Simulated scan of single mutants.
Amino acid sequence: MGSWIAGYDSGVELPSPRGPLSERVVAALSGTPDGRVIEFVPADPHGEDLAIALYTLYELHYGGFTGVDPAWEWDPELLRLRSHAEGVFLARLRSDVEGGDDLDAALEALLVEHVPGNGVSHHLRDHGTWDQMCEYFAHRSVYHHKEADPHAWVIPRLRGRAKAALVAVEFDEFGGGRADRMHSRLYADLLEGAGMSADYLHYLDDVPAPAIAIVNMMSLFGLHRSLRGALVGHFAAAEITTAPSAHRMAQALTRLGADPRCAEFFTEHIEADAVHEQIMRNDVIGSLLEQEPSLRADVVFGIQATELLEARLADHLLSSWDAGESSLRTRLRWLVSQNG
């Protein structure tokens, strides 16, 4: 058993700690589960330390880390620590959004396209540089390497039409049964086309908290049955807002003369997510709330939390670029392609 664990190779190394909480997490995972108490260390809900600590803990439910004993996934002490961290993160999310149960207003707000737009995709389309585009790719890699995986956890928690409709959307996300068309694979192709590393989570140490927090939210919602409504709200928000931004990203890549593999990821989403929007809104959310009307406020919360964290990432990117600075924590570890 011990030799098998020592030889376990997921292809992903433990990330570098960013504070006392993540130091405890990484130190624990470097050993073997022995029942020892792992004390929680208070951390900023939106800070680097809590973000990477939670991401590391959640990764145990995905592919794990090289040399880390798989038994850590369900270690009671590590789960207790994760519960503390989740409580801090979730409480801040709830306090930072408006809340309420006006679902129609929350959904309608997602459909509003401000003119002129001033978001990240607008910036990259109109005057973003290739370096900024590659930084954006690195930020999004910690999400798109997983793509629809966190959403899959909600499937056994839904029933009837809501379940069937969500599975239909997931089927498309996973390539319709074709491995080469899985959206996570298309993102890896995008990275290769940009001359960047396509290795799973290669840029995790480079990416700051705002991008990591989005994936932590997805994992949090997906792993907790009590947050199934929030996960559905998040998924709907992602599908509704993707098609317009994907169109702008495709235009940006054309302007920059990028490898066609870069644009393919976005062009795939333009048509698919326009269809997914209607499925999520009418079949998934509609059916879910027919069955469980008490989840309406949770769906609204999922939408609002998604918009909150996406806005925080956008603010970070645009403020960094406006100041002439990198939006990443470290110099990007990629080989400049012919597009550079």
Rank of each mutant, 00 (worst) to 15 (best):
M1D: 15
G2D: 14
G2R: 15
G7A: 14
S10P: 06
V12I: 10
L14E: 11
S16Q: 15
P17W: 02
T32Y: 10
A43H: 06
D49V: 01
L54V: 02
L60K: 03
Y62Q: 15
G63L: 13
G63P: 01
F65Q: 10
R80G: 06
A85H: 05
L93G: 05
S95A: 15
G100W: 06
D104N: 12
A105H: 08
A106N: 06
L107E: 09
E108P: 04
V112F: 07
P116W: 00
G119N: 14
S121R: 04
H122W: 12
T129A: 05
T129V: 08
V142N: 09
E147M: 02
P150R: 04
R157Y: 04
R161Y: 01
A165D: 12
V169D: 10
D172P: 10
D172L: 02
E173Q: 10
E173I: 04
G177H: 08
R178Y: 06
S184L: 08
R185S: 13
R185I: 12
D199S: 14
Y200G: 07
L204A: 09
D206V: 01
A209M: 02
P210L: 01
M218P: 07
G222H: 00
L223C: 05
H224P: 10
H224G: 08
V232K: 00
F235N: 02
A236W: 03
T241C: 01
R261K: 09
R261P: 10
E264V: 09
F265I: 00
T267K: 05
E268F: 09
H276M: 02
Q278H: 15
N282R: 14
P293G: 03
V300S: 04
Q304F: 03
L308D: 14
L309W: 00
R312G: 07
R329F: 01
L332K: 05
S337I: 00
